[in-house]
């Protein structure tokens, strides 16, 4: 696919190197790909998905150098040299982390399409603020949309995850 693209459009494909979920990787990337396309087309990672296409829904959340970004609005070339982490990253030993377990326990999702984004954003929130108030939670996660309307359960899950993380420490 890429071969045809470069030949036909005369696009300058660039090779970039970065860390993906802890592993050093490299990839050939056309300039106009966004980060979601890079992850899907080159690495088969589909946990970050483009939905609204405008950075509003959070389905495409990816961590770049430790900060959450909307993969659909992030040029793939810009992760050259960066550390990229996706929902597919597994902590040492594998298995689910406290946030994922809390989401299951609280029933904090239905169709699951927005769930990876919510999980990643919740981890970010709890890293920054281990004991968030409900208002903190609502503000921090206001940029993630769940059309199934699992918000009450998501709030419950975040509180539960905070407690579980504290207990782990």
């Amino acid at each position: 696919m890429l071969g045809a693209l470069t030949k036909d459009l005369g696009v300058a494909v660039r090779t970039i190197r970065f860390k993906l979920n802890g592993e050093p990787v490299s990839a050939e990337v056309p300039p106009h790909w966004n980060l979601v396309e890079l992850l899907q087309n080159r690495f088969g990672l589909t946990g970050a998905r483009e939905s609204c296409g405008q950075g509003l829904c959070g389905c495409c959340t990816v961590l770049v150098d430790g900060a959450a970004v909307s993969g659909c609005l992030y040029l793939a070339l810009l992760v050259d040299g960066a550390e990229v982490m996706t929902i597919e990253h597994q902590a040492a030993g594998g298995g689910l982390d406290a946030v994922q377990k809390a989401f299951i326990e609280a029933g904090a999702f239905q169709c699951g399409f927005c769930t990876p984004g919510f999980v990643l954003m919740t981890r970010q929130l709890l890293d920054e603020n281990p004991d968030p108030t409900e208002d903190d939670i609502r503000h921090y996660l206001s940029g993630n949309l769940c059309r199934c309307g699992a918000y009450p359960e998501i709030i419950e899950a975040v509180k539960l995850a905070a407690r579980m993380r504290k207990a782990e420490r």
């Binding site: 589909t46 946990g47 597919e88 299951i104 029933g107 699951g112 769930t115």
Partner: peptide
């Protein structure tokens, strides 16, 4: 009984299968 969804682990890990992912 309020058992969790069968696909719960796949959904929180971003591994659930959707046509969206299909190549």
């Amino acid at each position: 009984r309020s058992i969790p969804r069968l696909e719960a682990a796949a959904k929180v890990a971003g591994r659930a299968e959707y046509v969206h992912n299909l190549q």
